[in-house]
Nucleic acid binder design. Structure first.
Lengths: 253, 253
DNA sequence: ACCTGAACACCGTTCAAGT
DNA sequence: ACCTGAACACCGTTCAAGT
């Protein structure tokens, strides 16, 4: 390598041999994940292949393996990046329920912004920094609500699963990330018709409660799920009659 | 290659024409799903390809397309079959909570018996008969518990999602469907060490509550999630102070 | 020493050419 | 008329051969 080649890129550094192209930014995990997220957003999860990502970076698929461990690792990095983009705010003990809803709403929004990303399941081992920060915030909000620490610890998982399920549900309905209000209404109507049309002999309850089964927007059902989980934990904290016994918290090992 | 090389290895069965073989049962969707489930159980989800399934049925991949709409459709059929195998029992208003736990436990067991099947997400349109029957049973149990009909209707979805999430969690931990108690203990220990080892500055709550975060077996957490959801719905039924308002049930259309 | 073109061992799906 | 071998258009991943 000559001194000239090592010089910073300001002024006109002509690289005659690999000429013309705008200086092709060096590869990095970050650049790869950026490119992959762009493809995910515009073309969907199936379009995110090692080849398409590489091509969009002006290189070959083989070159990606220096920076990511493979397609699996790339998807995990993408999910981590999306998770890291979620705004967190310090828990407030007076507004905690509102904060919980708005935090989970932001998580949901971040996921559906990249249709298909919610289908990525992390192997439990490498808990990423972004997910830990999200969990820390979630745990803080639940504790600010004076929910029992053991319930709060386990509740984080449940709430995350609720959000992931809602996002996945959204993904299968609008695989391209688009979707109108009319689509939603049509779908709800169709679902309702399916339920009322069922044989009352084989499905007495579903057909009798067809309206309730089909009721609500995705958002309403999402909010309901969160409230049910929170109310459930609060009910246990106040030791309601109906509630089953609390699990014993014990140190593993 | 000589003719001898082509002959099967037990004794000398020469494949004269198409006969000799045990009459090759005719293809059907049922037979294809059976074969696919067998491969799923023994080799995992990734091994379920149109080619491997076809080969195990002594035919070519192309022949399967007469009976199933493609790999997607095959997977849906497999999930439906697994769902259909779950034993249902009429709801009892005195034992409803026990029934709920045991029903969901059976759903969970059916799913983890076929590692990977829980990762299959149905496109919402074709609600299968087996899933409708399961939902009918679930709805009946919740109504037997005198849970508000609107809550019960939406609760079915939440509970199904909880089970699916638990089964998926189990799948990523033991991709082959096997797994010992020691594995579980090791994993819990590792998780605990990860949590206590975190910076108390960046993760004050997680590191302070490491024991609770890592506590419990998968089964304990599963039971907890169910109880929380049920307790939440009960709390709303009795109009607890902390509970947020119930959604209004309205007919779509 | 580093990068990558080309190869390998697969996929799901289609369809023309056989029976 | 039906079935299916072979082909098509892809995959993820590896590695020898180039620079």
């Amino acid at each position: 390598m000559s001194v000239t080649d090592d010089a910073p890129q300001n002024i006109t550094v002509r690289k005659r041999s690999t000429r013309d192209r705008p200086a092709k930014a060096p590869l990095s995990e970050e650049a790869i994940i950026d490119a992959a997220l762009a493809i995910l957003k515009s073309e969907g999860l199936d379009a995110v292949t090692m080849r398409t990502v590489a091509t969009s970076l002006d290189t070959g698929a083989a070159s990606l393996y220096v920076y990511v461990s493979g397609r699996r690792g790339l998807l995990e990095g993408m999910l981590d990046r999306v998770t890291a983009s979620i705004r967190l705010e310090p828990p407030s003990s007076t507004r905690w329920r509102l904060q919980l809803h708005s935090l989970l709403q932001r998580v949901y929004q971040a996921l559906v912004d990249y249709p298909g990303i919610a289908a990525v399941t992390l192997p439990n081992s490498p808990v990423t920094n972004a997910i830990l920060l999200l969990t820390e915030n979630l745990l803080g909000i639940l504790l600010a609500g004076e929910i029992d620490p053991q319930d709060a610890a386990w509740g984080c998982d449940i709430l995350v699963q609720v959000v992931m399920a809602a996002a996945r549900e959204d993904d299968v309905r609008r695989p391209d990330g688009r979707g109108t209000e009319m689509d939603r209404q049509n779908r709800a109507d169709e679902l309702y018709r399916t339920f009322v049309g069922l044989s009352p002999l084989m499905f007495p309850l579903i057909s009798a409660h067809a309206a309730q089964m089909a009721a609500g927007t995705g958002d309403e059902r999402f909010r309901f799920a969160i409230d049910v989980v929170v109310d459930g934990m609060l009910a246990r904290a106040s030791g309601g009659e109906g509630a089953s016994s609390r699990p014993t918290s014990h140190r593993p090992g």
